[in-house]
Amino acid sequence: MIFQKITHRGQLFLQKIDPKSNQREFVIKNPLGNHALCAGLQDEVQVTIKGHVGYYCAGMNKNANIIIEGNVGTGVAENMMSGLVHVKGNASQSAGATGHGGTLVIDGDASSRCGISMKGIDIIVKGSVGHMSAFMAQSGNLIILGDADEYLGDSIYEAKIYCLGKEKSLGADCIEKEMNEKEIKHLSSILKAQNIKADPKKFKRYGSARNLYNFKIDNVSSY
């Protein structure tokens, strides 16, 4: 039974929690890879999904704390505004895409285009990420404890990428930047908030060289 399809007076249940209700913890069993589970939650609730889910799980999340005890499909926590999404398995493509805020933690690997066009979200991947991660990322932090595939941070704006492992190649206009005291402190606070034991001093930081901000005819091959 899909929890989300249980309607309450014609409206989706988890998306429309009764403000007078004290029940704030929910468990979804046997999700069977269904799509858009827990999409558009707006209240401070704790939801645990026991199993593997399909596309766009926890999309547009606001305030809710969602734990997925399994793998997730394409676009987990897409356009998240706030709250926490914790994936205990692997994530498919475009994890945390266009996220404005909140935190996405992936215990396993994330596939290609992780954090594409991110706008303020913090994404922590304990495994590795696929190609073109943080593509056109505008702000926020992508923290990778494993390795990164080709074209990391392609056409990046002001988001910050921290990588503990090796990157296969950097994308257009993405360069390695200095990991100074301020950055170590910043990274340390994000890791500490999620109880992740990793030495912030060992990370490498990547960001924008800011050469593609304005159109220059010399850069035409990079666009």
């Binding site: 069977l32 890879g33 593997h52 399909g54 793998n71 493509q93 690997d109 696929g130 595939d149």
Partner: peptide, 22 residues
């Protein structure tokens, strides 16, 4: 193409599930 297609296979929840690299 998606997990939903294999959700009813025997012991699939104990399987090693991953996305192939391009």
């Amino acid at each position: 193409s998606e997990f939903q297609a294999m959700a009813h296979l025997p012991d699939v929840n104990k399987a090693n599930i991953y996305e192939p690299k391009p």
